[in-house]
Every structure is written in structure tokens, then in C-alpha cells.
């Protein structure tokens, strides 16, 4: 789908909302992909974490509001710790979740994760707390 940018369409409204909710500098992200490289839940995600940020930067409302990827995020902070620009991607995921909930989206996912021994402990804990797995 084409992204329409220009005078008649507010360019960064979506990005502004996410920046306000997460308090992170969304446009500091230069799409290096290190967050996606280390994300333990990325295999279940329809969009990689760096893609989620990119869609937000591009003000792609429909994609952001319909992506399921943020519900698989376990808030393990592996991305935040390794980001070279110091962006807390986990917070951005939380911001997107907040926007989706405010939009009235029902949460029907059961995030599926296979613990192959590489899942950080904090990911398991976070999953417990979030979804009562």
C-alpha cells in the first residue's frame, strides 16, 4: 500500500502521539535492526520491531493499529539495552499497545513462544505478568 505524504495529510501526527506516550525520540531510530536481531519473540511477530518503528515514523496509521506484533512483545528490554541510539523500544511497543486498546481493539492473541533456552528470564516473567500464561 502506498504511503501518501504531503501538505494535505498531517505528516507526523501518529509519530507525535507515540512520542508523547512513550517519551522516546522516535526519529532517532536509523533502522539499524539491532533490536530485531536480538528480539526473542520476533519469530512470532508479523512485523519486526524495527518495522513497527518505521511504520510509526511514516505515519502509517492502518498498519500500526492493526499489527499483532506488539502483543507478542514480552518487554524483556533486550532491544532497549542494545539500541545504539538509546531508544527504549519496549516503551514504544507499550505505546502502540495503548493506542490499539484506546481504539477498542479486542485482544484475542495467545502469544506462543517456544522456550528453546535462549529466552531471557525477564521475558518469561513479563509474559506471566502480562498474559497470565
Amino acid at each position: 500500500m502506498k504511503i501518501i505524504l504531503g501538505n494535505s495529510h498531517p505528516q507526523s501526527l501518529f509519530a507525535q502521539r507515540i512520542e508523547a506516550l512513550s517519551r522516546q525520540k522516535l526519529f532517532a531510530c536509523y533502522q539499524c535492526g539491532k533490536c530485531s536481531s536480538g528480539c526473542p519473540m520476533a519469530e512470532s511477530m508479523d512485523l519486526l520491531p524495527n518495522r513497527v518503528i518505521r511504520e510509526a515514523q511514516l505515519n502509517n496509521g492502518p498498519v500500526i493499529m492493526s499489527c499483532r506484533a506488539v502483543w507478542f512483545c514480552s518487554s524483556c528490554f533486550a532491544c532497549a539495552v542494545r539500541c545504539p541510539k538509546g531508544i527504549d523500544i519496549a516503551r514504544i511497543m507499550e505505546a502502540v499497545r495503548t493506542l490499539q486498546m484506546l481504539d477498542g481493539k479486542p485482544i484475542t492473541e495467545q502469544p506462543f513462544c517456544e522456550d528453546t533456552g535462549t529466552l531471557p528470564q525477564i521475558a518469561l516473567i513479563s509474559h506471566f505478568r502480562k498474559f497470565n500464561m
Binding site: 539499524c32 530485531s36 519486526l48
Partner: peptide, 19 residues
């Protein structure tokens, strides 16, 4: 960008991504 390089047994594993 590569996120992690570690040893899994005798093998060296590299975790990266292709955006």
C-alpha cells in the same frame, strides 16, 4: 545490525537481521 555473538556448544552463533 548484529545483536549478539555467542558460543552454542562448540559453534559460534551470530544473531542478526535483514531489515
Amino acid at each position: 545490525k548484529v545483536s549478539k555473538i555467542f558460543k552454542s556448544g562448540a559453534k559460534l552463533v551470530v544473531w542478526g537481521a535483514d531489515t
